[in-house]
């Protein structure tokens, strides 16, 4: 896998954790939310391998529950481990966000 797609996956995983932390969602709902935030280039199907990976790592948990619209859906919620992973992700993201922005804008070193 290329570094570029690994980076994107990592970022996307962080976003998924953040969305699930707010409220538990099911797959389709999650993809709609990602798109509403503007991540239109993320193909809808690509969330499912990530959801499986996050489940396997114990960061989220899926549960079949009745949805308001009727049918049973698999809702995901964050585990304690997932909470920690999200905090780590936010810290890492903050630590690279500013320097990367500066570099990309062609600013000077401090």
């Amino acid at each position: 896998m290329s570094l570029r797609s690994q980076l994107l996956k990592g970022v996307l995983e962080g976003c998924i954790l953040a969305i699930i932390k707010k409220e538990s969602v099911y797959g389709y709902e999650l993809s709609v939310k990602l798109q509403k935030f503007g991540l239109n280039d993320v193909s809808e199907g690509s969330i499912y391998p990530l959801l499986l990976r996050l489940q396997k790592a114990g960061l989220i948990k899926g549960e079949m529950r009745d949805s308001p619209s009727g049918p049973k859906r698999k809702y995901y919620h964050l585990t304690e481990k997932g909470e920690e992973a999200l905090q780590d992700f936010i810290a890492e993201w903050e630590s690279i966000r500013k320097p990367v922005e500066k570099i990309l804008r062609g600013g000077n070193m401090e």
Partner: peptide
């Protein structure tokens, strides 16, 4: 089976919005 059901639900929902399977799963 849980995964297959999720994919099916997603596809059904997307179909309602006029999308094709390729648009979702590539």
């Amino acid at each position: 089976e849980e995964l297959l059901m999720e994919l099916l639900d997603h596809l059904l929902e997307a179909q309602k919005h006029g999308k094709m399977a390729e648009d979702i799963f590539g």
